[in-house]
Amino acid sequence: RGFLEKAAVKKMAKAIMADPNKADEVYKKWADKGYTLTQMSNFLKSKTAGKYDRVYNGYVIHLD
């Protein structure tokens, strides 16, 4: 289950990176699912340092 969630989160993160207008909708879905910042950090780990920082930081702001 965790692997599928991670894959889904990364897919949506890539969608945000391609079209930032989708961010609020995606952040709301993640918040509704109760994803914590720790979970998001783990889901968005990448071999490329900083690749998903913008998405993660946007989610931090959304939760605030």
Results as ranks from 00 to 15, higher is better:
residue 53 D to E: 09
residue 31 A to W: 08
residue 8 A to D: 08
residue 47 K to G: 14
residue 14 K to Y: 07
residue 27 Y to I: 02
residue 31 A to H: 10
residue 30 W to Q: 00
residue 15 A to G: 06
residue 54 R to D: 14
residue 43 F to K: 01
residue 27 Y to Q: 00
residue 54 R to Q: 11
residue 34 G to K: 06
residue 6 K to V: 08
residue 27 Y to W: 02
residue 13 A to L: 04
residue 23 A to I: 03
residue 24 D to E: 12
residue 53 D to G: 04
residue 45 K to T: 13
residue 41 S to R: 12
residue 54 R to P: 10
residue 4 L to P: 05
residue 52 Y to S: 02
residue 23 A to R: 05
residue 52 Y to H: 02
residue 34 G to E: 04
residue 59 Y to R: 00
residue 25 E to I: 10
residue 17 M to E: 04
residue 33 K to M: 11
residue 54 R to L: 11
residue 17 M to I: 11
residue 43 F to A: 06
residue 58 G to I: 01
residue 37 L to T: 07
residue 44 L to P: 01
residue 2 G to H: 15
residue 60 V to A: 12
residue 47 K to Q: 09
residue 42 N to G: 10
residue 45 K to G: 07
residue 56 Y to F: 11
residue 17 M to S: 04
residue 16 I to G: 00
residue 29 K to L: 14
residue 48 T to G: 08
residue 28 K to I: 08
residue 15 A to C: 14
residue 43 F to L: 09
residue 2 G to D: 15
residue 39 Q to G: 02
residue 25 E to F: 10
residue 17 M to F: 05
residue 29 K to R: 13
residue 14 K to E: 11
residue 31 A to Q: 13
residue 33 K to W: 14
residue 8 A to N: 09
residue 2 G to K: 13
residue 50 G to A: 05
residue 30 W to T: 00
residue 16 I to K: 01
residue 57 N to A: 13
residue 20 P to A: 07
residue 17 M to R: 03
residue 53 D to L: 08
residue 27 Y to D: 00
residue 58 G to L: 03
residue 30 W to I: 00
residue 23 A to K: 05
residue 46 S to L: 05
residue 25 E to L: 05
residue 40 M to E: 00
residue 8 A to E: 15
residue 3 F to D: 15
residue 38 T to W: 12
residue 62 H to G: 02
residue 46 S to I: 07
residue 64 D to F: 12
residue 52 Y to W: 07
residue 10 K to Y: 07
residue 24 D to R: 09
residue 10 K to D: 03
residue 31 A to L: 07
residue 48 T to S: 09
residue 43 F to P: 00
residue 8 A to T: 14
residue 30 W to C: 03
residue 63 L to Q: 04
residue 62 H to W: 14
residue 44 L to S: 00
residue 1 R to A: 15
residue 37 L to Q: 06
residue 7 A to Q: 14
residue 46 S to H: 10
residue 28 K to W: 04
residue 25 E to M: 10
residue 56 Y to L: 13
residue 25 E to T: 08
residue 45 K to L: 13
residue 62 H to R: 03
residue 39 Q to E: 09
residue 52 Y to A: 01
residue 8 A to G: 13
residue 64 D to I: 14
residue 57 N to Y: 13
residue 60 V to G: 09
residue 9 V to T: 03
residue 46 S to A: 05
residue 5 E to Q: 08
residue 22 K to P: 01
residue 7 A to D: 04
residue 30 W to F: 03
residue 17 M to D: 03
residue 2 G to P: 15
residue 64 D to T: 14
residue 38 T to L: 11
residue 12 M to E: 15
residue 53 D to V: 07
residue 60 V to Q: 12
residue 37 L to Y: 04
residue 50 G to F: 08
residue 1 R to E: 15
residue 13 A to V: 05
residue 29 K to I: 09
residue 9 V to L: 04
residue 34 G to H: 05
residue 49 A to Y: 10
residue 32 D to K: 14
residue 41 S to A: 14
residue 45 K to Q: 12
residue 49 A to L: 10
residue 57 N to C: 14
residue 2 G to M: 08
residue 39 Q to C: 07
residue 18 A to D: 14
residue 46 S to C: 13
residue 46 S to E: 06
residue 40 M to I: 13
residue 3 F to E: 15
residue 6 K to W: 09
residue 42 N to V: 12
residue 55 V to L: 02
residue 50 G to P: 04
residue 61 I to M: 11
residue 36 T to Q: 02
residue 19 D to S: 05
residue 35 Y to L: 09
residue 16 I to V: 11
residue 23 A to N: 02
residue 14 K to H: 08
residue 19 D to A: 06
residue 9 V to Y: 02
residue 7 A to F: 12
residue 27 Y to H: 01
residue 38 T to G: 11
residue 46 S to V: 08
residue 45 K to V: 06
residue 13 A to P: 00
residue 18 A to M: 09
residue 22 K to V: 12
residue 7 A to K: 15
residue 54 R to V: 09
residue 54 R to N: 14
residue 4 L to Y: 14
residue 34 G to N: 05
residue 56 Y to G: 02
residue 25 E to R: 07
residue 56 Y to K: 03
residue 22 K to I: 14
residue 31 A to S: 11
residue 52 Y to K: 01
residue 64 D to V: 13
residue 32 D to Q: 15
residue 44 L to F: 03
residue 48 T to Q: 12
residue 20 P to S: 08
residue 42 N to R: 13
residue 6 K to C: 14
residue 42 N to W: 15
residue 6 K to T: 11
residue 63 L to M: 06
residue 41 S to P: 01
residue 63 L to N: 02
residue 56 Y to P: 02
residue 8 A to I: 10
residue 19 D to H: 13
residue 9 V to H: 01
residue 46 S to D: 15
residue 16 I to P: 00
residue 34 G to T: 03
residue 58 G to E: 04
residue 1 R to K: 15
residue 23 A to T: 05
residue 51 K to Q: 09
residue 38 T to P: 09
residue 13 A to N: 01
residue 27 Y to C: 02
residue 14 K to I: 07
residue 1 R to Q: 15
